[in-house]
């Protein structure tokens, strides 16, 4: 009944994710195979979504071909997918969002560099050096992406509940890894409970609200609690009543939303500290 998310800097992680899903009879999802659904729902061409996963949106909105909304759209569908439970999710998108959900098991798989290089050489017939450069570039791009979008260091093991170091990617090691993951996810700790299911629902709803309001402010912060939505935005001027009304109307149409509060340019702590 739980969710596993696997992050790895190598294709072996994807293999393990797929195998784990098969063994546990869970559904396998990754940020790539969800793109078609995202494209359909939000009307964004898949190619643009693919690029959004590679290039972090830069500050210069006009010249950047990838918009931050795309990532929000992808996050929304992933979060709603995870509501189903019994999912194995392979990818980085949305990782920080689900850190606070107790029944999600976050797994990090670290593979030996040498073996990764050797594995890379095979499919496309690359030389050792080329393969190495390709892998280093991919790692760097992924790290940059995560740092730019989420401000996290994906290599930092403290972000994960379970860290597996695959020695030499021999079949035994992969088997061991799978067994570890499976036995860990069956542990009582990672079973869903009312509280954690609520958490997940809140995350999904927050994502959905953000996606709905993305055209107004793509940097909006949204918190949900059992149908009550709190939004914090700096992109609207204080007297923009119409905009706020528009926001509220849009959000109230979303299923499950009972009430919405809009906070404009609101930095709670500083306000309180200044005695306002």
């Amino acid at each position: 009944m739980s969710i596993i998310t696997i992050t790895a800097g190598s294709y072996i992680g994807r293999q393990i994710a797929k195998s784990a899903a098969k063994r546990l009879d869970y559904e396998y999802v990754d940020s790539k195979n969800i793109l078609s659904l995202v494209s359909k729902e939000f009307g964004v061409p898949e190619s643009k979504l693919v690029r959004a996963l590679k290039e972090a949106p830069s500050g210069i909105g006009m010249f950047s071909k990838t918009k931050p909304e795309y990532i929000i759209f992808i996050e929304t569908l992933i979060a709603e997918y995870l509501l189903k439970n019994n999912i194995v999710y392979y990818g980085v998108v949305g990782l920080p969002l689900i850190q606070e959900v107790p029944h999600v098991l976050n797994v990090q798989i670290i593979a030996n560099l040498e073996d990764r290089i050797k594995n890379r050489m095979k499919p496309d017939n690359l030389s050792y050096d080329k393969a190495r450069k390709v892998i280093e570039k991919e790692d760097e791009e992924q790290a940059k992406w995560a740092a730019a979008v989420y401000d996290i260091d994906i290599k930092n093991s403290s972000l994960y509940d379970l860290v597996i170091n695959i020695g030499h990617m021999k079949d035994d090691d992969v088997e061991d890894a799978l067994e570890t993951i499976i036995s860990t996810v069956k542990h009582k700790k990672f079973q869903p409970m009312t509280y954690s299911l609520r958490c997940m629902k809140n995350v999904a709803m927050s994502c959905r609200v953000r996606a709905t309001l993305a055209d107004i402010d793509s940097k909006m912060q949204v918190k949900s609690d059992e149908g009550t939505i709190y939004t914090y935005t700096k992109a609207i001027k204080k007297k923009a009543h119409d905009k706020v009304l528009e926001m509220k109307q849009k959000v109230m149409r979303i299923e499950g939303v009972k009430h919405i509060e809009v906070f404009i340019d609101y930095d709670l702590f500083t306000k309180v500290a200044h005695g306002q």
Binding site: P102, H187, K188, K189, F190, Q191, M193, Y195, R198
Partner: peptide, 20 residues
């Protein structure tokens, strides 16, 4: 006072469910 750590600890120790 629900947190991820508390929830997991409770489940680990055999709770049936946790509601905040």
């Amino acid at each position: 006072y629900a947190t991820v750590a508390l929830a997991r600890e409770a489940m680990d120790k055999g709770a049936f469910d946790i509601i905040a």
